[in-house]
Simulated assay, not measured.
Amino acid sequence: MKNPLDPYTNTYFVFSKDPQSLSHMLQDPQTVNWSQKFQIQGCQAALEEVIHTLLSKHGGHMMTVSNVLYMRDSKISSDEVEALSNTSYKIGDLQFSPLNQDEAPLVNAQWLFGGNELSENYIRRCIQTFSTLCARVPGMPKPIGWALSEQSAEIRMGYTESSYRSQRLFGNVGTRLMAIQQSRGAPIYCHVSPDNKKSQSACMAVGYVPVGRWQQWSFQPS
């Protein structure tokens, strides 16, 4: 977290079974640097009150995003992945591979939380470090759909080119990436905007179930 202006890298993931310890954790200057831009992500309702109490103490501005949290508890079987390979596509045969770092601008342009230079650098580091997967049509220069994981192991930034939607492409890419994450012992989860009904339906079609709220607090100091 060397760049005080980079909230993408400056991200805290917070969880505690004791709500009181949340306050102590976030007030500890050895834990949170309130002099820089940062994000806090969590899935506990108790965080909201604690964070706003601390905001009144430190000043600055906090923007909150609250989305639907989805998790998949059931394991992904080899039969499930094999069934995806037998899916009939109007677009013909597909190839699946990790994203390349030079495709970070493509992902950045479609990411709701991105669209700037800092987010593009962050996406490039995610591609370099964590599990990603995309679908390619042979002979086409760029992928037609993709999904990435990041430092909390969450699957994010999923996207399908508009002309290839409604062909189960999201489910194909997403399930394959979930299988990769599962093999590495990671929890399988994601979040979706409460207004994005199509993405919510696509998540549930591949075994995700809604379990609560995913929240992100973006802090900018005075």
Rank of each mutant, 00 (worst) to 15 (best):
Q95A: 07
S163Y: 01
D93T: 11
S163K: 13
G145S: 15
L84P: 01
M71G: 07
R125E: 14
N121T: 11
V107N: 07
L55C: 08
E161L: 04
L112P: 02
K142C: 01
S78D: 15
W146I: 01
S163I: 05
E154N: 07
K142V: 12
A135E: 05
F96L: 08
R136I: 03
S66Y: 00
S119W: 13
N86V: 09
S78P: 06
V81M: 05
K75D: 10
N108F: 00
T64S: 13
I155G: 05
V68Q: 12
K90F: 00
N108W: 06
K90N: 12
E154C: 11
A46C: 10
I155K: 03
P138F: 02
S166H: 08
A46G: 09
R125Y: 03
V68L: 13
N121I: 09
S97P: 01
A153I: 01
V50A: 12
L84S: 04
R124K: 14
E48Y: 04
E103P: 03
I127V: 08
T87H: 03
T87C: 04
H58I: 05
P98T: 05
S166E: 11
Y122F: 13
G59N: 14
N67Y: 08
V65E: 15
V68A: 10
F113C: 09
I91C: 12
G115D: 09
E48G: 01
S162W: 07
G158Q: 12
K90D: 13
A135M: 05
G60T: 13
M157R: 13
G139S: 08
M63T: 10
C126V: 12
G92T: 04
I155A: 08
D93G: 01
F130C: 05
Y122S: 03
L133T: 06
M63K: 15
E49N: 06
M140W: 13
K142P: 00
T53F: 02
R125P: 02
Q101D: 06
G114Y: 09
E49A: 08
S131K: 14
F96E: 07
I76D: 07
D93Q: 09
L55K: 12
A135W: 05
Q128G: 05
T160H: 04
I91Y: 07
C126F: 04
L148K: 05
N121C: 06
G59T: 13
N116T: 09
E150T: 06
N108K: 10
H61E: 15
E150L: 01
Y70L: 08
K90A: 09
S78G: 07
G92K: 11
S149D: 06
T160L: 04
N121G: 09
E161M: 02
D79W: 08
M63L: 13
E103F: 01
E154F: 02
T132V: 06
I144Q: 11
S166W: 00
E154H: 02
H61V: 11
G158M: 12
E48R: 14
S149L: 04
A46H: 13
G59C: 05
Q101Y: 00
Q101M: 06
E48C: 04
Y122L: 00
L47Y: 03
S163L: 08
G92F: 04
N121E: 14
C126I: 12
G145E: 10
Q101F: 03
K142I: 08
R165L: 01
A109L: 11
K142W: 00
V68E: 10
M71A: 11
S77Y: 07
V50Y: 07
R124E: 12
